[in-house]
Design a protein around this nucleic acid. Structure first.
Length: 579
RNA sequence: CGGGAUGUAGCGCAGCUUGGUUAGCGCGCAGCGUUCGGGACGCUGAGGUCGUGGGUUCAAAUCCCACCAUCCCGACCA
């Protein structure tokens, strides 16, 4: 491709809308342009990268026997009413009506459609397992789209659904997908973690998230350097470090703490460490309130709480509190809470002489002790790990990182096949619900994550595997015939060897070309300039390392292929079916 | 949806507090000339419903009201 003819608008200024590197560089390097909040057009360069990523995904999916389909974005209401999700899904689902007043939605996901399709065609266990996937635009009317492609409303997703005879068969496919996902991320050159993502409400499901490590990421991860344990911070297991010294139980007493409603203020006022206090968190499901006691210096994990209670809960709301005059906000404690169940974090089981809310305005209790001064209905694990906490499996100190969730694999079981009545006939002639799995990769999000992890202050640093071009030739003096001819010749050589090459033949100053080449992040930058004129040498710069070397024209392609080959071998790619 | 902020040329911004002639600057864009290995210089030029609607006023980019859009912080997710 000749740069002079290519639709590739780069910008010098940082767009006012963007904050994250991936967002800024997607715009500056001419990959995308915004159409509306969370909605983007992909320009030719962005399109190329997208296709590269999709190809990698296709190869890995096909290699595991998954078959590609394409489903519509527009889906009829009836389908969603069958699964109950037309009402369940909420405002995130974009609904619209056609000229005949029929209701549709823009598909936020495709479980309903795929399940009903398979159900209509597959009747026998002999046809199972079946694994279908698609790479398609999905639409979710996000409450708050942000960070460019990282959280769009319209985004491209690869989603796969497998239909199995039983749990065992599902587990085999699940394992295969685990491997396939890992390979996709490796081939994209990414540093990532796989974390268990247990689902709170519906027990028994197995689920893993694939998270690209990046400081800008929205999910917080806990990693153990010792045993490799990885988890969402909000669900992470850990063992607490501070085992309290044994002390004698002191006499409990009420102290006046007028106007003191936070742990910090309380600890300061009473001159105790925050960890010697207990805070009482209130959560609710519908109108039901639960009190959860945790150590004052800890944070409540709603995810863990939800899992423990097996309910979908949120922090208590003012409306709900109005019906409970016995609750004294700011001084809540496990006293006189009537019918409200009191749960407590296991960490408090051995605690002694704690400060705790008295559930009486302007009073706390000091030297409170479990069992003597207050009772607990249920013990559980309700808090996040913090710096210094140890791995519950191997006792190493846990590490904290942030990441971007790009993939999620799920053992669905019969949730959708049941609600949609999708069945097959098994070996015994009995009707059974399909046992399903679903597997998603956010393709556009993956693109953004790569930039988020692979960039510097000058621009993107594409891994060769997804780079829109492997090589860019900078013709520094387009008016110089010898240099022009050399550049054209080199351009042909690259093409003949199957490399994707961008020839910067624009009538621009050298500085512009250098800056753009680095912004675009093309892995190999070949300079045709004075060096060529004087010594017949091409200067090759490697974008990632900044290293450079000089070679005669004819040798360049082999050297580049050699370097690329070495990188590929590091990943050990065996190509699956391609088409 | 709650909290914060912004909307002026393709992009980045000033002007608004204290209303007053043809609304500015930088980059980019077009033409000509000089330049040409890290975003050159000179000259000429094109480009604006000042987010939209209403109001106040002799007069509104500027003051008031409403709405819309966009971004950032919270609850959701690939």
């Amino acid at each position: 491709m000749r740069y002079s003819e290519y639709f590739l608008p780069t910008t010098r200024e940082i767009p006012a809308d963007a904050e994250l590197a991936s967002h800024i560089y997607c715009l500056r390097a001419g990959l995308i342009r915004k159409v509306a909040s969370g909605i983007y057009i992909f320009l030719p360069l962005g399109m190329k990268v997208l296709q590269k990523i999709e190809t990698i995904i296709r190869q890995e999916m096909n290699a595991k026997g998954a078959q590609e389909v394409l489903m519509p974005v527009l889906q009829p209401k009836e389908l969603w009413e069958k699964s109950g999700r037309w009402t369940e899904y909420g405002p995130e689902m974009m609904r619209l009506r056609d000229r005949h007043e029929r209701d549709f939605c823009l598909g936020p996901t495709h479980e309903e459609l795929i399940t009903s399709t398979v159900d209509a065609e597959i009747f026998s266990y002999k046809k199972l397992p079946l694994h279908l996937y698609q790479i398609q635009v999905k639409f979710r009317d996000e409450i708050r789209p942000r960070f460019g492609l990282l959280r769009g409303r319209e985004f491209i997703m690869k989603d796969g659904y497998c239909f199995c005879r039983n749990q065992k068969e599902l587990e085999v496919i699940y394992q295969q997908m685990y491997e396939a996902y890992a390979r996709v991320l490796e081939r994209c050159g990414l540093d990532y973690a796989v974390v268990e993502a247990e689902s709170g409400i519906i027990g028994g499901e197995v689920s893993h998230e694939f998270v690209v490590l990046a400081d800008a990421g929205e999910s917080e991860l806990v990693l153990c350097p010792g045993c490799g344990y990885a988890s969402n911070a909000e669900l992470a297991h850990f063992s607490w470090t501070t085992i309290p010294d044994r002390e004698d139980m002191k006499e409990a007493a009420l102290v006046e703490t007028a106007g003191i409603k936070t742990i910090e203020a309380l600890a300061h006022y009473l001159s105790v460490e925050p960890k010697k206090t207990i805070k009482t968190m209130l959560v609710q499901e519908g109108k039901n309130i639960f009190a959860i006691l945790i150590r004052g210096d800890r944070e409540l994990s709603l995810a863990k709480s939800a899992r423990h209670l097996r309910r979908s809960i949120g922090l208590v709301e003012q409306d709900t509190l109005n019906a409970h005059p016995e609750i004294r906000m700011g001084y809540v404690g496990p006293f006189g809470l009537n019918a409200i169940p009191i749960l407590a974090d296991l960490e408090l089981k051995e605690s002694q002489n704690m400060v705790i809310g008295a559930n009486r305005d302007n009073f706390h209790m000091v030297n409170a002790n479990v069992g003597r001064d207050f009772q607990v209905d249920e013990w559980g694990d309700f808090t996040y790990p913090v710096w210094g906490d140890k791995c519950s499996k191997c006792a190493n100190e846990l590490e904290f990182k942030r990441g971007i969730e790009v993939g999620h694999i799920f053992q669905l079981g019969t949730k959708y096949s049941k609600s949609l009545g999708a069945t097959f006939i098994d070996e015994d002639g009995q009707s059974q619900n399909f046992v399903m799995g679903c597997f998603g990769i956010g393709v556009t999000r993956l693109l953004a994550s790569i930039i988020e992890q692979k960039h510097d202050e000058r621009g993107i640093i594409w891994p060769v595997s997804v780079a829109p071009f492997q090589v860019i030739i900078l013709l520094l003096n387009p008016t110089n015939n010898r240099q022009r001819e050399a550049a054209e010749h080199l351009y042909e050589i690259f093409q003949k060897h199957g490399l994707e090459v961008l020839l910067d033949d624009r009538d621009e100053r050298a500085g512009v070309k250098f800056t753009d080449a680095e912004l675009l992040g093309i892995p190999f930058i070949c300079l045709i300039g004075n060096k060529l004129e004087r010594e017949g040498l091409v200067e090759v710069k490697i974008r990632e390392s900044g290293d450079s070397f000089e070679l005669p024209l004819e040798g360049v392609v082999f050297r580049i292929q050699e370097i690329m080959g070495n990188q590929e071998r590091g990943i050990q790619v065996d190509k699956g079916d391609t088409f």
